[in-house]
Amino acid sequence: MLPEHLSEHSIAVALAAFDEGAITGGKFDRGELTLDIDAARIVSACGFLKHEQGFVRLSTVTAVDWYPSEPRFELVYHLHSLSHNRRLRLKCKVRGAAPSIDSVCSVWRSANWYEREVFDLFGIIFFNHPNLKRIMLPEDWEGHPLRKDYPITGNRV
């Protein structure tokens, strides 16, 4: 169900009409619209937003680690529509044990490197990714530096 406070945003209404269970929450804060998306439906939701709502560009994909709370990881997608000149943020929550989500590479090819970066630095697995390997760090690196339990100096735990 679409939360009450999102019903004035046409994108949220359209996405809820396309897939009723896709939106689990959201907010409109400081002029930026954020929609929480059910992690299992991210690919179909993104496909709809790209093809029906004009979000032809994926600006970034990143993650936030809310260690030690659960679900630990939050994946953040920034979408951009050139024709409507608007931006949209999608967020998916992922649990800390063996974190994984479907890749959106089939929707935007630019997701390829963005998701590799998240995989490299957070250790989140993207299913159906064409080339999921480390991008910033050497391939034999241990650990994922942007996790909050990864130390800034000293030995890794």
Partner: peptide
């Protein structure tokens, strides 16, 4: 809160995604 700020750098779209948890250090900057 969180914001995504975009500007036009000489090379194109430069974006800073900043998450604050209310403390004096950024919780996450992408």
């Amino acid at each position: 809160g969180e914001v995504y700020q975009v500007i036009e750098s000489p090379r194109g779209e430069l974006g800073y995604y900043m998450v604050s948890d209310g403390t004096s250090k950024p919780y996450r900057v992408h």
